[in-house]
């Protein structure tokens, strides 16, 4: 019990660099714009709901992008995307594309980001903090903040892999037949490929994708496996992005892999890349 207590206390009190959360903040806004900008440009739909949700979307995400009252703007953006886009337009108004998996991940992400110190770096919030410290004659505040919110983002990604793999653990998928459907629907049409390796290839791809997804659930949290698993997972998603209709899902997953890496490692890497000395 004391071990559990210690871990819980560590989770609630651990602090680390705010740079990874800031990178996710900026990247997430870009993805939100890529996915939704077209739907909420004023002339696209002169409907009061679209105009209202659009105004809220643009204002909140712009503030979030620049890191102005970052956690507050992340909450505002998240409420707009979840309540306005996902539930209201998606479910109430029946805009089915707004209910897809990748749009849910995008919509929930600002709310998860609001639980992180996402304004602690690369933001107006940071700039104001530096100016205040300068004015008071104090040293610059450290770029550090609580870690627990970032681990929630990582947990969300792990749950996507876990339940995605559970869903695929069935005879139709593992036999490769569902994979045959995908490839025929997208590429080969109704002529079943004559190549004798087609069916074994589909079986292999199906089984390996499920094995990888199960492996990523615990594996992404293990620091020793991250240098191996993160590149493999990135290639896996890149192939899916290139070959199948997945929208922003791949890029969202790429972006959130940052959440698995210890923030101080990311911080030091950025320092090293910038030619500065390493902090630790």
């Amino acid at each position: 019990m004391s071990w559990l207590r210690e871990r819980a206390l560590w989770l609630a009190t651990a602090e680390a660099s705010t740079r990874p959360a800031a990178l996710m903040r900026i990247g997430l806004v870009l993805l939100l714009w890529v996915r939704y900008a077209k739907s909420f440009i004023l002339f696209t739909k002169l409907d009061p709901a679209y105009i209202g949700i659009g105004a809220s979307f643009w204002l909140s995400t712009t503030l979030l992008f620049f890191g102005v009252f970052s956690r507050l703007s992340a909450t505002w953006a998240g409420v707009t995307t979840m309540a306005g886009i996902y539930f209201f337009l998606g479910y109430e108004r029946g805009m089915e594309p707004f209910t897809h998996h990748h749009t849910y991940l995008l919509c929930i992400s600002p709310l998860l980001l609001a639980l992180t110190p996402c304004g602690g770096s690369y933001s107006f919030d940071r700039w104001w903090a530096l100016r205040s410290a300068d004015a008071a004659g104090e040293p610059p505040p450290p770029e550090r903040g609580p870690l627990w919110g970032q681990y929630l983002i990582a947990f969300q990604i792990a749950m996507i892999y876990l339940w995605g793999a559970v869903d695929k653990t069935n005879a139709a998928y593992l036999s490769g037949e569902r994979f045959e459907h995908y490839l025929m629907a997208l590429y080969f049409g109704s002529d079943y490929p004559k190549w004798s390796g087609f069916a074994p290839m589909c079986t292999f791809l199906a089984v390996s994708s499920v094995v990888l997804e199960y492996a990523l659930v615990p594996g992404l949290f293990l620091r020793r496996l991250q240098p191996l698993l993160i590149p493999i997972a990135m290639i896996f998603h890149a192939i899916i992005y290139y070959t199948m209709p997945v929208g922003t899902f791949t890029l969202n997953m790429w972006l959130f892999y940052i959440a698995f890496i210890h923030p101080d490692v990311v911080h030091d890497f950025i320092d090293r890349m910038s030619g500065h000395s390493v902090s630790s």
Binding site: F87, Y91, T99, H101, Y104, I108, M159, I160, L162, W163, G164, V166, D167, K168, R178, H181, Y182, M184, A185, L186, G189, S190, D191, Y192, M244, V246, F249
Partner: peptide, 26 residues
């Protein structure tokens, strides 16, 4: 996915489970 709930407030992760069902091999 396991409990049979259809609540829109709960998210399932069943990517591609319904994709490519409208294809025949002929």
């Amino acid at each position: 996915q396991l409990g049979g709930s259809h609540s829109k407030y709960l998210r399932n992760w069943v990517m591609f489970s319904g994709f490519a069902r409208e294809i025949c091999a002929v």
